[in-house]
Design a binder for these strands. Structure first.
Lengths: 339, 339
DNA sequence: CTGAAAGCGCTAACAC
DNA sequence: GTGTTAGCGCTTTCAG
């Protein structure tokens, strides 16, 4: 094994010499560009294959000034929402020759700047990034880059070029409306304490505004740090109900902690949804296997990925106002009683 | 907004002219390479910043023949195990100047070949890829590439360069031993039907071999297609127990379906772990919030990522035999009775 | 249909 | 400490 690892990677010239065809024509064959006779094409392909030649995109990109990469910048991979977005993006990019390259910011603006800088230094053909809130530095880089920029997940704010997402404000408001319609009145909220999670913040704002319309205000809030897990959902639920035993509804900022809360409540024998209603956010398929299906809002993650990719790929042109608004859809599940 | 998007991206030359310093020295400043006087450095940095210059790594990579990218090739992003591996990799790469670039194969060998080809065409400084089973084409490409190759997750087989992982055969065998020790004898297995999931296959093989040592053989198996979910775990558990009501243990090929099975069994009132024991595989933290903690094997995902990254980064040299064997650790949880 | 020449934006290597 | 020269491996452009 492993006997003759070549010192020098193969170049077009090697294929050219092995096949007796000029570098230029070899290049044409390998890229399916321009007309080449079947005979020549065959010679080249055989030579390339037997040598095990892999083109050098660094050189190719420099010469052609075009790179088939799309930068995708997201806050996290671990909360089971961004993998869905990525799935939508890859699916839609599949037949375009474009390839997504993923960068993760951990919800840190300086880290976002760094990741963006790094990705832009590869001169991608487009950028897809989560959220509408970016540092002045980031905005300047994107302005200077002169490439399509699609901001995803959120549409409550100003887009640089194009935004594809849902209104989290609206998602929050609609959930509030459903909860009120069902007759719940003593409502608690459980969410992350993350100043940089703008979407969760907007959701909560929309939620409280809608409650206020009915003269209801939140009876309790509980915030947590770090990642979401079932365990975290349990702890926070226990804590908020210990503090405010009279609560009749809990709105969670994501499905994972909501599911944890649900499991805890069921164990403790709470009457759900009779005496206590629960709802989460995202619409992950984890919920389908729980003892009761948690009410939630489908955040349209896959669709968001697809539309963003279509725009970057030029399959679809962004609307005049630069906003592609998808509709967050309420999923009642089993944890909100019927009105 | 968006007024003066430049037609031509900025080059070193622009910074050079704006600062009155030669291109070469500008380059030195921007890369922190070689000695440059504080005064010059300041001039350059200011010019670069005010122009909004972003270096072109395509050109840089071509000139220097070095690229700070590490290709990471994994089968899937959606099963909550690879994000952990990725986390370990990024964490360890953070201070090395290297950057992971992720490719996903969906457990398809042809897709793996394609992804690998594509990544190699960017001439990364190293490759980390899941598993030891690769097509002849893939092996040839890796041999030709002349760069460090680390195969992760599995060590049961031959590595190209270096393998970092656990023995799945052993993990299966050890779980079997625990189950037998606890006195269970009528054992069923539930797993994916994926010819390409070699690790699951090896786990099952090790599991059955160990059972055979005690003259026990599997009483039932249930296979499924597609992704894992709680719901799938419920359905399969119901099915296998309908077919073989006498089973006293269920071994699942991953924690997600195991958790689904656990929830279903609890609802149906099974005596767990008294009459029926359950175990999964991976050790994901989802398990911490379930009504009972599912027994499982910690697959050491984060450690695997870290060690692999250390080797690619040259922080650590691979052992002579090319195998970094981590120890899969049994986690008893609450679903196996004490012996 | 095929080839030759020029150069993409940067850095290695060598002057000064 | 700083500048000059020559490519890196490919593709563009223009000839044939």
């Amino acid at each position: 094994m492993n006997t003759k690892r070549p010192r020098r990677p193969l170049t077009l010239r090697d294929v050219s010499e092995a096949s007796g065809v000029s570098e230029m024509t070899v290049s044409r064959v390998l890229r399916n560009r321009g007309d080449v006779s079947a005979a020549t094409r065959e010679k080249v392909l055989t030579a390339a294959r037997t040598l095990g030649y892999v083109p050098n995109k660094i050189a190719g990109g420099l010469a052609s000034q075009r790179v088939n990469l799309v930068a995708v910048i997201i806050p996290s991979l671990s909360n089971m929402v961004f993998p869905d977005v990525l799935g939508g993006i890859s699916a839609e990019l599949e037949d375009t020759g474009l390839q997504p390259v993923v960068g993760v910011t951990n919800y840190s603006p300086p880290r976002e700047d760094a990741v963006l800088y790094d990705m832009l230094s590869w001169r991608p053909s487009g950028v897809i990034l989560a959220g509408l809130e970016h540092s002045a530095v980031a905005r300047a880089m994107l302005d200077n880059a002169g490439l399509p920029v699609v901001e995803i997940m959120d549409i409550d704010g100003d887009a640089i070029d194009t935004a594809v997402g849902i209104s989290h404000r609206r998602a929050g408001a609609e959930m509030a409306a459903e909860i009120l319609r069902a007759g719940y009145r003593r409502i608690g909220f459980i969410g992350t304490h993350m100043p940089e999670d703008h979407r969760a913040r907007k959701r909560l704002a929309g939620f409280e505004e809608r409650l206020a319309q009915d003269n209801v205000s939140l009876s309790a809030r509980e915030f947590y740090q770090g990642g979401s897990s079932l365990q975290k959902g349990r702890e926070l639920t226990e804590r908020i109900l210990a503090r405010e035993p009279e609560l009749d509804f809990l709105y969670y900022s994501n499905d994972m902690i909501g599911a944890g809360g649900l499991l805890w409540c069921l164990e403790k024998g709470y009457d759900i949804p009779g005496k206590l209603g629960l709802a989460g956010f995202n619409g992950v398929d984890l919920l389908d296997g729980l003892p009761l299906r948690l009410a939630t809002t489908d955040a349209r993650r896959i669709d968001i990925g697809r539309r963003a990719a279509r725009i970057v790929a030029g399959k679809e042109t962004a609307p005049e106002n630069g906003v592609v608004a998808l509709t967050p859809t309420f999923k009642p599940g089993d944890t909100i009683r019927n009105a």
